[in-house]
Computed example of a mutant assay.
Amino acid sequence: MSKLRAGLIGLGMMGRHHARVLSSLDDVELVAVADPGGDRFGVAGGRPVLNDVHQLIDAEIDYCMVAVPTQFHLEVGTALAEAGVHALIEKPLAESVATAEKLAAEFTNRGLVGGVGHIERYNPALQAARARIEQGELGDVYQVATRRQGPFPGRIADVGVVFDLATHDIDLTAWVTQQDYVSITAQTAHKSGREHEDLVAATGLLSGGTVTNHLVNWLSPLKERSTVITGEKGTFIADTLTADLTWYANGEVQTTWDDISRFRGVSEGDVIRYAIAKPEPLRVEHEQFRNLLQGNEDADVVTLEQGLQTVRVAEQCLRSARGETPVPLA
């Protein structure tokens, strides 16, 4: 089988990592990269550094990794679709529902493969949590609570914290529980003087009755990435910074020593931090997209429809924060 000819557009903070992975991916040849600002991180590795998506298309690529700012996804994605080029597009799919719908249609209507780079799905801790939930180890899922906070990244200028960060939590929550969002409400704040919000607190309801809440900000010196999944048999805590998954089981042994009971509670059970393999999530993401292009229908790729649904939920967060009437999500 001949290698897939890949291109990369966007050589910023994320683009440089995509270049590294694509350069070493089996059955894939990274033939050229493109960025109007040039190769400031020096990741091209001797490959042509082109100016725009049209020159990249002329290099006869089979598919393209799109790592440009969100506001340019529609322009770049449309050009690729019109040329018959498959694309993996960095999250979020677009900056609005209307734009995301147009972009998804460009690929779907032409029978092209499109994917969205929601990388948290490929974090080993969340992969293990989803598998264990699917096997019934948690029982009914009652609640998913996420915390995602840290200092402001200077590279982000075109969207706020909802579209840049909260979309991670929206997608991973729907994916790990295998439920859709039914509704979501949110409050936002603008504390850093930027046009876009830098803090959001959101509460949602999923189709299986699971309640979710997401606390996300760009205002903390502490970098935190935590997903707490509580169900009838206990709680999973996934730390996606370290890719650790810890299980807190409900207790089955009664604590008869009153002092310990008052201190620790009466339902404390086993606590296990699982030993799991920890491949790099970005590499797994690219491997899955490659596998799909090679005809593996079981490849785990975030579809354009799933990316669109995440944009719907994110947009509803912002509508809710403005006091607008909620719209149905599912």
Rank of each mutant, 00 (worst) to 15 (best):
E29S: 15
F152S: 13
V216E: 03
Q309R: 15
G10Q: 06
I133D: 11
N250K: 14
L245E: 08
V313E: 00
G46Q: 08
V301W: 05
A19Q: 14
K233H: 14
L80V: 11
H17C: 08
S320N: 01
L219Q: 14
L329C: 11
R121S: 07
T210N: 04
A44T: 03
R225L: 07
D198T: 00
W247A: 12
G323Y: 00
K102C: 14
E106N: 09
D58Y: 05
L88Y: 06
A87T: 03
H196V: 02
L245W: 07
S207N: 09
L50K: 08
E287K: 06
A34D: 04
A79T: 04
V211W: 10
T325C: 00
F41D: 11
T235G: 05
L80M: 11
R290E: 09
H86R: 05
I237H: 15
A330N: 13
D27M: 06
A202D: 04
P326E: 05
N217I: 00
E197L: 00
T256P: 02
L329I: 11
V211I: 14
L293V: 07
N250P: 00
P221L: 11
V144M: 09
S23I: 02
V85H: 03
T173C: 06
E224C: 07
F236V: 02
E287T: 07
